[in-house]
Structure formats: structure tokens, C-alpha cells
Design a protein around this nucleic acid. Sequence first.
RNA 1: GGGCGGCUAGCUCAGUUGGUUAGAGCGUUACAUUGACAUUGUAAAGGUCACAGGUUCGACUCCUGUGCCGCCCACCA
Length: 875
Amino acid sequence: MPELPKAYNPKEVEDKIYQKWEKSGYFNPDKLPRQGRDVFSIVMPPPNVTGTLHLGHAVMLALEDILIRYHRMKGDKTLWLPGTDHAAIATQTKVEKLLKEKEGKSRHDLGREKFLAEVEKFVSETKGVIKNQIRKMGSSCDWSREAYTLDEPRSFAVRTVFKMMHDDGLIYRGERIVNWCPRCGSTLADDEVEYRTQKAKFYTFRYSKDFPFAIATTRPETKLGDTAVAVNPKDERYKKYIGKTFEIDFVGVSLKLKIIADRAIDAAFGTGALGVTPAHSMADWQMAERNNLPVVKVVDEQGKIRQGFGAYSGKTVAEARNLIAEKLKEDGLIEKEEEIENNLSLCYRCGTPIEPLPSLQWFIDVNKKFKIKGNGIKGYKKGSEATLKELAIAAVKGGQIKILPDRFLKVYYHWMENLRDWCISRQIWFGHRVPVWYKGKETYVGAGRPEGEGWKQDEDTLDTWFSSGLWTFTTLGWPEKTSDFKTYHPTSVLETGYDILFFWIARMILMTTYVLGDIPFKNVYLHGMVRDEKGRKMSKSLGNIIDPLETADKYGTDAVRLSLALGTSPGSDMRLYDEKIAGFRNFTNKIWNIGRYVVEKTKDKKTKIKVKAETVAERWILSRLNGVIGEVTSHLENCEFSQAGEKLRAFSWDEFADWYLEINKIQPNNSLLAAAYSVLLKLWHPFMPYVTEELWPNFGGGLLLVAEWPKAEKKLSDKKAEKDFEFLRSIITAIRGMRADYRIEPAKKVRVVVYAGAKKKFIDSQSEIIKNLARVEILEVEKSGKKPDQSAGMIISGAEIYLPLAGMIDVAKEKNQLEKELGEAEKYLAVIKNKLSNKSFTEHAPKEIVDGEKEKLETQKEKVEKIKNQLKSII
RNA sequence: GGGCGGCUAGCUCAGUUGGUUAGAGCGUUACAUUGACAUUGUAAAGGUCACAGGUUCGACUCCUGUGCCGCCCACCA
């Protein structure tokens, strides 16, 4: 074994180790050396193929890898299935942008086929980059099962599901108001729309001099398409007009306006009258349906005014708005012009303002009943009927899907209950093309192209979330009846950021309950967003982006993983900054150096490892280690990554390194040391796989990756040893503080054996003490009262003792210290006294607490006395 | 408009059914350093637990209200 360098150097080991893992084949559950009965599976949320890995991905990869490695070591059949998402709009937008920059061309210049070839070229490059970045994070996923949302098996599954839903009457085509992005030239789903508060001009005006009252709007240009004016039925001002129709001239365009009553109208807002524009407002469209109003389209797909509106035709929306406002002003029709704040709808991909407009689109009906296809949802039998909404709610309400943190349950229900039909068609080119073909008046829907000549496929593609909604089972081979599907579905955990709860998680539940009549996953773990040290979102414009790979290069992957997994809680945003990662880098180095020490002590020993704990310190560390195994295991079972890591970190540093290792220097038991440390390596492996794997060859055969997860054993738990060691530790601490004044419990006789004499110098470091205490142990003396052997050292029994070191006390400093201590002790004594003199406390509090207080009173009294005595003796 | 989360040391955060004198990491200060580890060690300083009421013998913890910060949903014609 080559000598280990003084500091851990991640750069030199990471690639080498990942290759070793990958070559071993153990990422693939079929090849695991131990084939347990339990199954654990995660299907990786597929990163977009648009670009590079960001911190959100890094969190996802770190947490999932922790779970996966833990379960693999436990012996479960453990599958982590990786993949990538074609991210239709996002990718197309990116390629369009590149095309524009490089060649100054638009997608229309190239045409569908050539453009798609460009996209494919782009994707084949970025996909490789992303896959390597996933590797760099140490992700132990099974690359042999890798999937892509747009590869052939997934595409076939998508078409199959489309046909199923179409046959069940859940998919329909219809004209509806959709969210239209004029830049992308496509529809957007409701939740793909973002809002930004902005200042807008709010005009109060009359359509014409012939119209009896005024209305108000921020969008005068859409008023060209008004077909009605709605008022509240209870509004006295307008009651007399309800039902009448006005034919008027509005800025040169003739309108026919019916006055209708609608309870949705707020009489207090604006003038209490609303110009109804069915074609360009979601609410107005519904009003038009209720009142049978005609629909007049004003804005076209490019965001311009359509033909037939006189001088305004061909103008952009913004131009027309100004022109109309000017014209109204000229005609003296404007009554008021104010600045108000309103929400502007924007495309979440490109930030362009959304135009609501009616368009022929494909929808999924979420309220239509269909025959359930499986028995996986509690309370809903196969063959009985339910709607998509009902099933998706039932899967969570029945407790089959658990969401962590559970406060997101409410959010989920609220969203699901208010879900409207889902518009699944997009007018972009990159994606799954709608599997519908037309020939004359004939229409064909199917998983494959129809036979015969002359069929033309629908131009639209499907919303990217349609295919990602099927992700948990299409990746496992569905619709084929594969053994993977049988073994690993439903998956165990779905781990992702809370920001895509609606986009993705809800859609997966919706689609899976439909297609399989089953749940997609048993547990959902939502992590928070990663923010900068000031809590701001990371963004290019702020320049505060931390690149996970750059950082991993600087501090090591293990440090990055630790900084993302520790000190965080599910669903809460976390802050990340250099110092934090550097802290964890120091910690990986600490683990490394503990290992280095252990290796040095044990490298020449050829003796068999016999783990035998004899001294108090040895029994203590074994018992503690055993306790930590139990705690860490149970935290990992509950996805409490932070707690698991924090406990391990505290144990490793404060107990294992600072105490056990130091004592081992004087009382060596190196086989125990090595055994205990190897357990520590195992426990740490899921969190920091690289450094632990690098050290592992010194402690065990094979790869740590598949080493057996340690089990807590009752027989190793030794509460007495823990208590004794606490005591021993307090003695050492006291000696360190130059005041070996510890009171010994009368029942317990303790011997501190000091071989070496005290050095004549001020002693305040732990290693100094250890050096001076050649051998430290606690012995229990039989009750017979036989005196322990005094020749070996000094007896402490039932009285104060002063070690020789006490002679070195700095009197002034000591006095100061003692006075301070006395003050605090007396203060606390008063607190207890006060508490006990309170009748309500002694009468109402549980007996054990009152008794505890009484006991405390006694010990505190003694403590005060003792400090007083010490003070006296010093003076 | 409806809802959710947060407010604990200078900073980042723990605090598990209400019960010792509220904890950790980082930072700060002092001291130490031929050591497995200067990526270290030992200590110290640092808190009206946002505020106001209430319940209780007892509240960081439970209830009500207020304030500030952040987020989500709906929507403003």
C-alpha cells in the first residue's frame, strides 16, 4: 500500500474511483453480490438536455445517491435509473437562439426537417456533457438502463398512452382560449405562465358618444373584439340596460354590444361595467359561453391586430393600444386615465407577454369518467369508473403516496381540485408529434402511422410534461411487460425540488393512476432551492451562480455533496457559499487524516484482527459507535439526511478523533481502532463516497460501494461504560483546567493511575494531559470494601483530590475563575430554591420533576459549598 | 383576495410530544503547535428565542393577534 499523502487530494482520486465503480457493474442491481429480498428504486428526475448541470441537479444527485448507496449497502435490490429530458420548448428556444446568433436564420428558414436535425445535433452533444457531469457528482446510477424522454421506447409509450386516452374519450380537440406565446409561437399550459407586477395605464372611457356609460380597461386594443358589456345584476345604475343591444362605432370599427348581467362582475371595480372580449380573456370566454355571445378574434398568432380592423390591422398590440388611446382622447371619450398595478402574464421560458387567444388545440379532460385500469389505488377497483382528478387525489389521500414535508399535501390538493382541462398540444417542432393522422375527412389515431398512402400527421407536438408524466414506468419498459417493470414499480422515492410539484409530480400521479391504475412512487421528498449567501436566487444577471462542477473541482465532490445534504431540511431553501463548502472540505480532510493515522498504526501488523474492548474508553467507543449506527440508520430510513450527517459529523470529530484517538495513543488497541474506523467509513460512504472508497482498501476487501451496512447490536450497547467514560472525561477536563476537584459518587470508587510525573509547565492542551496520564482507567472495586492497590498511583475515593498539577495553579487567575463560578452557582441555586418554594409547582408538577429539582438543590448546595472552600484554600 | 413558510448568537441553522442554566458550525478573541490533521487543538466572549396578549405550576415550544421577510395559488376587466 503506497503511503497516503498528508492532505486528501480529491482531484487525483475521483475519476479513478468512479471508473472502478462503473467497471465493477454494481450500479446494476442484477450484478450485485448480495441479492436481498427488499427492493429499492429511484427513477432519476431527468435533467434537461439544454445545457449544463446546476446546483438544483447537484442537490438532487447528492440526496438520491445517499439513499441509493445506503440501500445498496444494506443489501437491497437497488436501482437508480438515470435519464435526460428533451425539454421541448426549452431546447427548441435554445437552438433557435444559437441558430440566430450563428447563421442569422430562424427555424422557418430551415423548415421542420432541417431544423429538427439541428436540434438533434445539439442534443447529442449536450447529452454527453450532462451525463459526464452526473458522473462527476459521484452518482451511482445504472447507466445500462439509461433513458431519454424522446428515444424510441419512450416515444412508443407516449403514442400508446395518447391512443388509450383518446379511446377513453379523455383526449379531445377543441377551440379554447389558450395561453399563447407569440415569440415561441406556441401554447403554454396554465402553470407555464408567470406573472410579473407592472404599472399599467387604466383607461376609463366610452366606446362612443352613443353608448350610455363608460367602461374601464388596461387593454383598449382588445376592445375591438368586444361583443357584450357585462354588469352585476344587482347594480342599480345599469339595471335598465340589461338585455338591450347597442350598435355603435368604436374608433372607426363598428361593434354590436349586448348588455348582459353576470354575478362575477364587481360593481365596485372601475365603472362596474366590463367590456366582454370573448376571444382574448379566459373569463370573458366563459361568460360568452354562458350567454351565447359571438367570438371576434382581434389579435393573431404573431401578436398583431388581424385584418378587418381598419387602420389598426397589422399593427402590434402595443402600437394599436397607443393609437386607440390617442383616438379616444381626440374624440373626448376618455373620462379617466390612471396608473394601476396589474399582473402581466409572461412565458416562463422566454419572458414574452402572453396573449390569451382562441385556438384549436388538444386537451385532456380531467373531469370525465373512465374505466380504471388497475387495482393499485385504494378504494378504486379495476373496471370501476373515476375521473383523472378523483384518482390523483385518492392516491395521496389514501396515504399511498407520502409527501415530505407534509405541508405540501394541502398545496397539492388545492391544485388538483382546481385543475382545468390540460392543453397538451404545442405548436413547436421539437417533441413528440401528436399521433393523429388525417386523410381528407378521415382521422386516424394510433401508436403507429396508418397503412396506405396520403395520410398527413398532425403538425403539433405534445407538451413535454406529457412524456415526463409517464417517466416512472416508461423507463422500466412499459408497455412491454418487462421484469424490470414488475420488480421496480411503483418506485420507492421520488426526490426533486418543490418548484416542480405541479409541473411534474402532479402530472406523474395523474398519468400513472390513469395508465396503470397504480401509484408511480411511494414517497415524495421535496428539497428546497439553493440560494446564495444573502438568500437571493442564483441568476446570470446577478452573477452569483455557483457552478457545482467548478466547486467540486476546487473543494472535492464529497465536500460539495456534504454542503448540500447537511444543514438543510426538506422543502426549505438553503444557502450556499464558499466558506460553507470549505468547511466541509476541511471535514473530508479530517476523515482522511484519521484514516491516515489508523493506517499508520496498523500497516505493519499482520496479526489477526481481534476486536476486544477492555478499558473504559474502548467499551465506551464501541457502545457509542453502536448507538450512532442505530441513529444514522433510522435517520436515513426517514430521509433525514441532515440529522444523519450531523450526528455522524459530531461523533467523528468530537468523540472519535478528539477523545478515542487521543486515548488510543497511550493505550493502543489498534485492531479495535481499525475495526471501529472501518465502521465509520461505511457509515460515511453514502455521504462522501470518494474519500471513503479511497481509504477502504486499507480496511477491507472489495469495494466499499457494496460493503455490508453495519447493524446496531444490543450486546455492544454499554450504558455503564458510557457513563464511566463521561466521568473519566470530566476528570481529564478538570485536570486540564488545573482543578482536579471532582467529587466521586460514594458508591463508586475510582482510581486514576498516573505513571509519569507532571511536567513543570502550564498544561492546557489535551494531548499534554494524555501524555502525562500514561494510563487512564476506571476500576470498580468490589463491594467488600477491599482497598485498591495504592502503589500504582493515586486513589480517588469519596473525597476531593488534587493531582500534583494543582500546585501549578495561577492563584489570581484561579481566584477570578472561582468567584465567577460561585456567582453563577449561587444564582442557579436561587432559581431552584425559588422554584421549590412555589407551592403551585410542588403541587402540580409531576412527582419525578419535583424530585429531580430537590436532588438538584442538594447537589447545587454542595457545589456552592465546595467552591467556597476552594476559594478559602486559595486565599 | 386565499394560502404556506420563516423570524433563535455577528452569519448559516438545530431545538424531537411544554420541564435543568436554549445548542452546533462558521466568524471573532486569547493561548498552543516538531503531533494523523495549521484543512489542527484548547478555551473565551456573544441570545429579552420578532412583538403583544392568552392557556399553564411552568412557554423557544400550544392558542389568538400584530409586524417584517420570502414563496405559492387565484385574479384585477
